[in-house]
């Protein structure tokens, strides 16, 4: 673990222009209809990964089962981050847990939404004075909706989810893009908490490049620090390397990840 002084302080988060403004529409009418359809489908089908960190988790079973039945709204629980759309953080997040939460968040496929349930995710709640608890969830990942309360009743949970659905349908729920565009900011906060050698298995910067989600604040001092010690994370590309046909190529330029 590196000392905390090695991590540059993030300072005040710079205001960053996010490319797509909320609710903007494409001009081509067919594309608009298509976008509407996709957004509607996205809003009516939400797979939920509940990371049951704290006491708030106990409010979810009633929200899912016969009394309130989330499936009416197209919301159902899923198991692995790859399958999920919503990451539900249901309570206080200790530093150790937060690492896993970030790993899980980065493994989800976008568009992805984070919902912080319970006051602990908003400001640490009753764990405000704890040395081991992350106070504000949205310092470490963009949060779409907070559902405050200690704990919020299932009605409140459903109400919050309805709000998220409305946001998705109108195209306003794109906080996930912020993670790519201001990665340096989030990474900085993470590094301050976990140390300078903090690294997740997901290569967020390469992902931003691949999907054209690169923003002006994706890179910065913190990502530079990350690059210093980062284990390479390129995918193992399939390569057909028949020695007889490859003799002219030198071994050095063949890439591949050495770990």
């Amino acid at each position: 673990m590196t000392h905390i002084d090695q991590v540059p302080t993030p300072g005040a988060p710079r205001p960053v222009e996010i490319g797509v403004k909320p609710g903007t529409k494409r001009t081509n009418p067919f594309a608009r209809v298509f976008d509407e359809l996709v957004r509607f489908a996205q809003s009516r089908s939400l797979f939920m990964l509940h990371y049951c960190t704290g006491c708030g988790a106990v409010e979810l079973p009633p929200a899912m089962t016969s009394r309130f039945d989330m499936e009416r709204l197209g919301i159902q629980p899923m198991v692995s981050p790859r399958q999920a759309d919503i990451l539900l953080i249901t309570g206080y997040v200790s530093v150790k847990t937060l690492k896993r939460v970030i790993l899980t968040y980065e493994q989800m496929n976008s568009p992805k939404y984070v919902i912080g349930i319970c006051s602990c995710t908003v400001n640490g709640g009753m764990y405000w004075q704890s040395y081991a608890t992350a106070k504000k969830l949205n310092d470490y990942m963009p949060v779409d909706i907070y559902i405050a309360g200690c704990m919020p009743r299932p009605e409140a949970v459903i109400e919050g989810l309805r709000g998220l659905i409305e946001n998705i349908r109108t195209g306003r729920a794109d906080a996930w893009k912020d993670y790519y565009r201001r990665y340096d900011h989030y990474l900085g906060n993470q590094q301050r908490l976990f140390g300078a050698d903090w690294q997740t298995p997901t290569d967020v910067i390469a992902e931003a490049r691949h999907y054209d989600l690169f923003g002006p604040a994706t890179l910065g001092a913190h990502t530079a620090l990350l690059e210093q010690h980062q284990r390479p994370l390129e995918a193992l590309e399939m390569r057909i390397e028949i020695p007889e046909l490859m003799r002219r190529r030198s071994r050095s330029d063949q890439g591949g990840t050495a770990q």
Binding site: L37, V38, F40, A41, Q42, R44, S45, T65, S66, D69, E71, R72, G74, R82, D85, Q107, N109, S110, P111, E207, Y211, A235, L236, M238
Partner: peptide, 30 residues
């Protein structure tokens, strides 16, 4: 059977559309 209302009529279709329309997709190779 669980005394719930259950999903709306086109739910299976919405699920499929949503999944195909994901903007980032994770592939582990060919």
């Amino acid at each position: 059977l669980q005394r719930r209302v259950g999903p709306p009529l086109l739910q299976p279709l919405w699920d499929i559309i949503k999944l195909h329309a994901k903007e980032t997709q994770t592939s582990h190779g060919l």
